[in-house]
Design a protein around this nucleic acid. Structure first.
Length: 821
RNA sequence: GCGGGGAUAGCGAAGCGGUCAAACGUGCUAGAUUCAGAGUCUAGUGGCUUAGUGCCUUCGUAGGUUCGAAAUCAACGAAAGUCCUACUCCCCGCACCA
């Protein structure tokens, strides 16, 4: 088979003629279609990738043919650890390693035949790109959105670098799934994502994203309203802040729980005689958290008390395993009206107090005797404070907030789980952070006109720690302010900075003076269709949204959200596992393209199920897709006839249904429609029909369609052919009905023949008079179908031949049938 | 615990109020073409039944609720993978979250 030459031929022709190059054109409606750009790995693409990028390409091609001005670029997220690790291992410089990988992967991408505009390609490791990361960093710094802070941060000892919260999965590094992330106290750069927490949450409503994904983000942002209580510690100047969302029964609080890894703990324990024992205990709990999925609830008394601000007296402070340093303030006021607190108190004989009771007196007794824990903050009745005695807790919530505020007992606050974004990485292969440390002036930003701060190329990868630090001549510089000797920041930015705005760069990839041209961005953005895996739900997709909002406030953009619609493709499985090297179940692009051609892979991947659902790879399924393309190819060899009404009907109904299915991304169903029509065309070949078929096929099987398009002597590119319009007038109800009747009749005849179990010599049909002409018109088709002579009679014709009185069975839409053998 | 998605014939997968014994693909069976195979084509693929348009049983399990038809009104009746409720199982997020 010659698919390989066909594929190459058309890929080259498309590129030579630049038919997929996008140009701003204010007269045309734009459509920005984008797949999440990949890290350029030198390994082959497997079917999971092919599926993902095919979905994008089908959309791009379809929209383009529909007359949209389509921007469909591809580029590389080319900073990252693999290149650096390769350098350590084999001595290849990350730059060379990356650029070689880009060359290779670009070849694989091109071999898929996707209609990317390659003239807009970007790679984030190029100074022309990362210069703007630095520029944004400085701008954000000016706006107070970047700051440096000493804080406990996530540390992966495999990466030998810090990680953002979003890069920690199940307590492990996202790149090293079995490596537990440790906490280290380090001075690091942060971006203030929390400044936009509320807006990030609110604007989710605007987006055409899946509920699941929105939910993930909502969860991650984790907004909750509550009260912040400040409790002074007895005999100390420490004030403990506690945060409660279920504060209705605040008069019941009888003890305080603090997280074992809470920063205040050390100070709190000063002067406590069993301090070391307590700290030992804390270590143990922290250790357990790392190793156990659901560690048991444990705690130890600190020997200290708070003086409760709301008049609950002195509350003992306990270190407990269930308090989390990261959530709220890391300290909780505990009471009898929380299941966990209740159980903990009982276990450790801590005093309890009930101020929330059910209506039922018997039940109330049990609650007051602490036999059961009552937590109904909606319907429970309050007994304290006295202003609220007898009131239902739920409706009183707001009043309690007001009450506490008025009495200065607590402050209403909103808490977010979202943390500021830690961007410092102690790695070489990333964007240098444009900061200079001066003994006198402190951390001084590199002046804008000195950007980019180029990544030094001559570094020693064999050293311990960050290789960049070995570039001493680079690191040693002068303070931009006072000109005294100073040192450059040797940390680089995490890769998510690169991917937070790359979609803007595609709009004007060659722009030199700014990260992007405003005019181009105004025209192309926002991305109409973004395609990628759900695993980026809380990382990249939050950062990009944040970045967009900041740029909007900098007046660089005039929209709030970068990705109007987001599509999460399903996963490709084989033998019950996600396709991946570690399972050894990978089917590569080349495995299929060499045997069947890439179009077969594309058609199969699009036909097996809805694009958003997971799918199982099947070798026999591929054969089916291959057969379909073969079948379609063979039609080109047939002699075309002039189309009749039925041909027009069939063709137009196909266009109508098919277009509808593509609009709704039901690619699997669209391919079925196409296959059905191909069967029809094989029997009733018309040029119009075939051209339509090829046009509609071209998004899925672009090379095959292009080749056949030229085989029937067309000169243009079907890839940019106009999408056919539906001629509603050609769609006929009668033809549709006739079709159905024909099918039904054939089915009946077959059944009888099967029962008779002999080849028919002659078949007689007895139609009701009204339908006589209809059946006469079907005669020829039926004769062909059964290769037997057929006679059609009116059922009331007295001269008819009807030895078995089958005419009596005739009904509207159902002829009587007599089969002679 | 919270949330999202599922469960349909051997497998994959449509259908999401009546036209459903359930599209399409794959697998399997039979027939045709062929020395044979591959390929291609045709038919069959829940059960029973009749020279057909019939009946029965099925869409995770168990219950429940109805409306409409090519115009209107009234009455009666019948119909659920499809709607509702509960449950079971599977996948995926988040989670001692105060």
């Amino acid at each position: 088979m010659e698919f390989q030459s066909i594929e190459k031929k058309w890929q080259k022709a498309w590129e030579d003629k630049k038919i997929f190059h996008a140009k701003e054109d204010s007269k045309k409606k734009k459509f920005y279609n984008l797949e999440m750009f990949p890290y350029p790995s030198a390994s082959f693409l497997h079917m999971g990738h092919v599926r993902n990028y095919t979905i994008g390409d089908v959309i791009a091609r379809f929209k383009r043919m529909q007359g949209f001005n389509v921007l469909y670029p591809m580029g590389y997220d080319s900073f990252g650890l693999p290149a650096e690790n390769a350098a350590k291992k084999s001595g290849i410089h990350p730059k060379k390693y990356t650029e070689d990988a880009i060359k290779k992967i670009t070849e694989y991408f091109k071999a898929m035949g996707n209609s990317y505009d390659w003239s807009r390609t970007i790679s984030t490791h190029e100074p022309e790109y990362y210069k703007w990361n630095q520029w944004f960093f400085l701008k954000f710094l000016e706006r107070g959105l970047v700051y440096r802070k000493k804080a406990p941060v996530n540390w992966c000892h495999e990466c030998k670098s810090t990680l953002a919260n979003e890069e920690v999965v199940d307590g492990c590094c996202w790149r090293h799934e079995t490596t537990k992330v440790e906490q280290k106290e380090l001075e690091q750069w942060f971006i203030k994502t929390t400044a936009y927490a509320d807006e990030l949450l609110k604007d989710l409503d605007k987006l055409n994203w899946s509920d699941r994904l929105k939910h993930l983000q909502r969860n991650w942002i984790g907004k909750s309203d509550g009260l912040l209580f400040s409790s002074p510690v007895k005999g100390s100047d420490i004030i403990l802040q506690t945060f409660s969302t279920h504060f209705e029964a605040f008069k019941a609080d009888t003890f305080i729980a603090i997280a074992p890894d809470h920063p205040l703990l050390q100070k709190l324990l000063d002067g406590v005689k069993n301090k070391n024992e307590i700290l030992e205990f804390c270590k143990k709990i922290i250790q357990k958290r790392k190793t156990q999925k659901e560690p048991e609830i444990e705690g130890i008394f600190t020997g200290r008390y708070t003086i409760d601000p709301v008049g609950n007296g002195e509350l003992p402070i306990w270190v407990t395993s269930f308090a989390i340093a990261d959530y709220g303030t890391g300290i909780v006021k505990c009471s009898a009206h929380d299941q966990r607190d209740f159980e903990f108190a009982k276990k450790h004989n801590i005093r309890l107090k009930a101020v929330l009771v059910p209506q039922d007196p018997a039940l109330r007794k049990k609650v007051e005797n602490f036999e059961i824990c009552y937590t109904d903050m909606k319907n429970g009745l309050l007994t304290e404070p006295k202003e609220f005695t007898g009131k239902k807790a739920g409706p009183a919530r707001q009043e309690i907030i007001d009450y506490c505020a008025k009495q200065n007992l607590a402050k209403q606050t909103t808490n977010y789980k979202l943390r500021d974004w830690l961007i410092s990485r102690q790695r070489y292969w990333g964007t240098p952070i444009p900061i200079i440390y001066c003994g006198k002036c402190g951390a001084v930003p590199v002046p804008e006109k000195e950007l980019p701060v180029l990544l030094p190329e001559k570094v020693d990868f064999k050293v311990q720690g960050n290789p960049i630090a070995s570039a001493t001549s680079w690191a040693e510089t002068k303070c931009p302010k006072c000109k005294s000797p100073a040192k450059r920041e040797t940390d680089t930015m995490g890769g998510f900075v690169d991917s937070s705005w790359y979609f803007l760069r595609y709009c004007s990839p060659k722009e030199k003076k700014l990260p992007f041209t405003k005019k181009a961005v105004d025209y192309w953005m926002p991305v109409n269709q973004y395609i990628g895996g759900i695993e980026h739900a809380v990382g990249h997709l939050i950062y990009s949204r944040f970045w967009t909002k900041v740029l909007r406030d900098m007046k660089l953009l005039n929209f709030d959200e970068p990705f109007a619609a987001l599509f999460n493709q399903g996963i490709v499985y084989k033998d019950g596992h996600k396709m991946s090297k570690s399972f050894g179940n990978v089917v590569y692009q080349t495995d299929i393209s060499e045997k069947y051609g890439i179009d077969t892979a594309r058609v199969f991947l699009m036909s097996v199920g809805a694009p958003e659902s997971d799918m199982e790879w099947s070798d026999s399924g591929v054969e089916g897709a291959f057969r379909l393309l073969q079948k379609i190819s063979k039609i080109a060899e047939l002699k075309f006839k002039k189309p009749d009404a039925k041909d027009d009907h069939k063709r137009n109904i196909l266009i109508k249904n098919y277009t509808q299915l593509l609009e709704t991304l039901k690619f699997n169903l669209a391919i079925i429609e196409l296959a059905r029509y191909a069967d029809y065309l094989a029997e009733n070949p018309t040029r119009e029909g075939y051209e339509t078929l090829l046009t509609l096929l071209s998004p899925f099987a672009p090379h095959t369609a292009e080749e056949l398009w030229h085989e029937i002597r067309n000169k243009s590119f079907v890839s940019v052919e106009q999408w056919p319009a539906v001629d509603e007038k050609a769609i006929s109800k009668e033809i549709e009905q006739q079709e159905q009747i024909l099918e039904k009749t054939i089915e009946d005849m077959r059944r009888i023949i099967k029962i008779v179990n002999k080849a028919p010599k002659k078949i007689y049909l007895y139609a009701i008079p009204k339908e006589l002409d209809l059946y006469k018109s079907l005669k020829e088709t039926l004769q062909k179908e059964f290769s037997a002579e057929i006679e059609v009679w009116a059922n009331n014709n007295i001269r008819k031949y009807d030895p078995e009185h089958k005419a009596e069975k005739a009904k509207p839409g159902k002829p009587g049938i007599y089969i002679e053998t």
